[in-house]
Computed example of a mutant assay.
Amino acid sequence: MTIQLGKIGYLNVLPIYHPIEKNLIENDFNIVSGPPSALNKLMDAGKLDLSANSSIEYARHFEKYYLIPHIAIGSCGPVQSVLLLSRYPKEELEGKTILVSSQTHTSAALLQILLSEFWKIKVNFVSGDATKELEEGELPDAILAIGDEALNLRYHPEYQSRVDLGEEWRNMTGLPFIFGVWIVRRESYHASPEKIRIACEKLIEGKDWGNEHIHDMCVLAADGSCLNEEEMCSYFDGLVYDLGSKEIQGLELFYQHLKKNDLISTIPELVFIP
């Protein structure tokens, strides 16, 4: 059984996957890379055994999955790669239209929560490709950009208002925000529990290796990026890769807000791999 492992195709998971892909940590994964929305669909369809997935994917189908402990992707403050970029101050967005990347589920839900519960602003949403629209000369009122696109667009001259959603969540709640979790399909686990447990251990080893070599990862990530080495180190410094008690509190609070806004039908129980 070759483990089908999902990888978010953004720089933020580089420290975890680099040692695995370079076989610095011995493994037999078949790695499938893609945006969060694509990995959510593959995981739900049973085409991956374990994967990094949107936090909301676990909430929507938690009966299918186990959480992998001690590993997540989030922030406790500015995340820099989940940004609301606007041509207007946030307070003037009432009635305006926000272009939301089709690659995101969790960040879009977080934005809806911030708008409805904390900012008390009503807007319209459309889904699309912000980079493509900007290249074609279109200027949406506002854009929710995530991942590498957010890093590339954050200083766009037409979008002077920039709101970091990770920072806004921390300001409103005092807790980290967990954008992604690593999950295992329960069917895969019960078919081969020992092999899946070893695979989970390899991911944790990857995280630990990445933390120990984070400066090297900054240098590697900056090569070919719009960010220089110093900016890339600042970016990685703002990320959270652990799933400790505070991170779990933040995740549980997010799920409560999802239920309150009818974005999920049931608040999920956090069930970790046996």
Rank of each mutant, 00 (worst) to 15 (best):
S116W: 05
F177G: 12
K195W: 01
E168L: 08
I31W: 08
E149Y: 00
L110M: 10
R197L: 12
G77E: 12
Q103K: 09
E26H: 06
V184E: 02
D223T: 14
L85H: 03
C200M: 00
L165Q: 05
K120V: 04
D129T: 06
V123Y: 03
H213S: 11
V184Y: 03
L220S: 14
F62C: 15
E63G: 09
R185A: 10
N228F: 00
E194C: 03
E247S: 07
A109D: 03
K195Y: 01
S37M: 12
L165V: 02
P193F: 03
V240Y: 00
F125G: 06
L263N: 11
I71V: 12
L251Y: 03
Y58F: 05
I68E: 01
K195F: 01
Y159D: 02
A59F: 08
E138C: 14
S107Y: 01
E21H: 00
D49N: 13
L227W: 11
F62L: 10
E187G: 07
K47D: 11
N171P: 00
A130K: 00
W209A: 10
M172S: 01
A130P: 01
I8N: 07
I198Q: 13
G95W: 05
N23F: 08
M1C: 03
L243R: 03
P36K: 02
W182E: 09
I121Q: 06
E91V: 08
V100N: 04
L67E: 04
P274E: 08
S51I: 09
